[in-house]
Design a protein around this nucleic acid. Sequence first.
DNA 1: AATGAATGAGGATTCATTCAT
DNA 2: GATGAATGAATCCTCATTCAT
Lengths: 205, 205, 205, 205
Amino acid sequence: MNTRSSALVAETGRRNEAAILNAAIHAFGTKSFNGASMRDVAKGAGTSLSNLYNYFPSKSKLLAAAMRHANDELQRRVRTAVDQAGDDAPSRLREAVRAHVGFVVDHRVAMVVSTNDVRFLDAEDRDALVVDRDATEATFERIIAQGTTEGSFHTPYADDAARAILGAAGAIAGWYRPDGPLSRGQLAEQYARFALALVEGPLPR
Amino acid sequence: MNTRSSALVAETGRRNEAAILNAAIHAFGTKSFNGASMRDVAKGAGTSLSNLYNYFPSKSKLLAAAMRHANDELQRRVRTAVDQAGDDAPSRLREAVRAHVGFVVDHRVAMVVSTNDVRFLDAEDRDALVVDRDATEATFERIIAQGTTEGSFHTPYADDAARAILGAAGAIAGWYRPDGPLSRGQLAEQYARFALALVEGPLPR
Amino acid sequence: MNTRSSALVAETGRRNEAAILNAAIHAFGTKSFNGASMRDVAKGAGTSLSNLYNYFPSKSKLLAAAMRHANDELQRRVRTAVDQAGDDAPSRLREAVRAHVGFVVDHRVAMVVSTNDVRFLDAEDRDALVVDRDATEATFERIIAQGTTEGSFHTPYADDAARAILGAAGAIAGWYRPDGPLSRGQLAEQYARFALALVEGPLPR
Amino acid sequence: MNTRSSALVAETGRRNEAAILNAAIHAFGTKSFNGASMRDVAKGAGTSLSNLYNYFPSKSKLLAAAMRHANDELQRRVRTAVDQAGDDAPSRLREAVRAHVGFVVDHRVAMVVSTNDVRFLDAEDRDALVVDRDATEATFERIIAQGTTEGSFHTPYADDAARAILGAAGAIAGWYRPDGPLSRGQLAEQYARFALALVEGPLPR
DNA sequence: AATGAATGAGGATTCATTCAT
DNA sequence: GATGAATGAATCCTCATTCAT
């Protein structure tokens, strides 16, 4: 019951905690924060309702933890990809976008939670998350700035292009179906090119 | 109390109906469908809770009506813009994007409802909405196909570019602030160029 | 089910409100504020749980309203008694004590609520109640001061005698049983004498 | 954290037991039996929730033990005081009242628990406590009877005067503040005189 | 003794909806 | 159309208690 094909949180040490977090992501992503009940989460995690509160003090804190995990994983993937790419802006942007799209495809529900339910966090948790989120955005912004400086990207709107790219990529979560016509790889490829074109960078022929 | 600067639904004939719809869009957009109560809507519309049911038979049908209105307005704007543009794909795409972005900026909350809450509609209403939505998407797809055929757009992914453009534009609702550094006009201008670049079309210098 | 022998709140106009208040006094007095559930109150009032909230916004506000009613009735009785007594301090004290004891006997549960559950009110409601309560206490203090000035009471502790008298009278609620050896009238008589003796005033032979 | 200025139960041998009992008295006295949770008690005692059950089999039994301790201490103080007083009823009553008031002042919360929460004991425990309580009351009754027989007290209501005196003294717990205008000693003095006056006994000039 | 994890029952409160007026 | 009162189901969360360690 717990073996959802691609759980976001790995079960290391604290069995239940991971199970609860994954169930929460699933429930919130599917039915939205307010539409999913703690009972739903408990059922999904295979534990009792009250036991949830031994791990997370409130529904909102559970959401915060779930979103933190999702964001960490996204950042980890993007950073790794950028680090392993070449030094030039085009290949770095390309790999960053591919990694980002890969995450969105692998964890569509987590992505939905991330974009829809931030508003239900405590002010404190929300602020912390926004900081993290901005860090991811900043990674893209830096690459684009680098490309502009280097002369490989010619967009006059370098400052705002990152948001457009991340917006397009994030929206994938809303419509992608793994059994649809596009494979994960094709999609990543497409969006990498869209991104390069958008910043008016060099395109493979 | 009802005079929200830019109400989506105009008050023609049925006073209350428009007030209720606008209040619903505001409430659902702000607190999400499940987070907003019918009491919230009633309060926002300046009428009594029970009176809501004289206009809409259920919360879900109210949501459906609200989304229908939002979608109609979006489609109207985009179509008008396209009709008034030149005959060539680049200017048509440019105007379509400008119109779309304009709508998103003017009705951010409605946009949020539209993208987040479709899942709470009855199957029937959801299907109807998806059809309408696809129509808007198809408008963009047709323009891109035209441009590709004409030879002005060179993207190899003509079939999927519309979704990327609409995704980027829709995401604006999540972060745009009217008192921020970007004016409505500048934003429309930016995204029009992003779109043209993305489809690898001709860019003004 | 509602016809408790001596309801504190009379049913005038708003049927349900009186029924709820009386049920609340009964439930809180019997099982204490935290031990009584809103369901208990609803059952006692013959209405549904959720309907309670159409009359009182929270359990704590319901308690506040109940205590307000109890205090009003107590004050009313004491004032009437004092007004109808002679002008001399001894007969005024006598009548005040008799009225107070009468109230305690008639509404023992209300008295229990009043003395035990003040701490569960909102700060605001608690303050308001304390003011009212002090007013009752002040009535006794004034009489004692008058008696001291007139020379009929000789206690050296005139300032604190009221609290002792009210304490003794309030405690009656904890042990009095209507079917016990003491009648309501005898009890009132006893405590009136106790009070006069305590302030070292003139005693009937 | 456990060192409350005047703990009722001394730490002899079983550290934890005393800590738990004192924490229970504090919690129940502050928030009432139903308002205080076993978690509150555990926190106050500096131990774990589950460990409480190694000392007391249930919340209600814990309450019983706490009340037993409070009552024992009260009785001990009153008896000692009476034993050390002279043989005449007036000085015995005087010392008994002083001791009783002293206890109430020193252990206000314990007194609150004692008077408010008896009803939450098991029938068995409640009966046992009532017996103990009656013993304390009987001490006062005996002194008053003695005084009446000796001819030093003239109240016609000798049988019921004890309850009035104890009621007045017990109520002190509800309003006394150590930082208020009355010292512990003054208060004891006042109530001793109130008691003597109430039974119509001889008063110091 | 001591603990952390677990649980079923029950707590106050809110909700969408209905109905009599 | 419009309203206030009514309700059953569901919400989040807390509780006393147990159990394995």
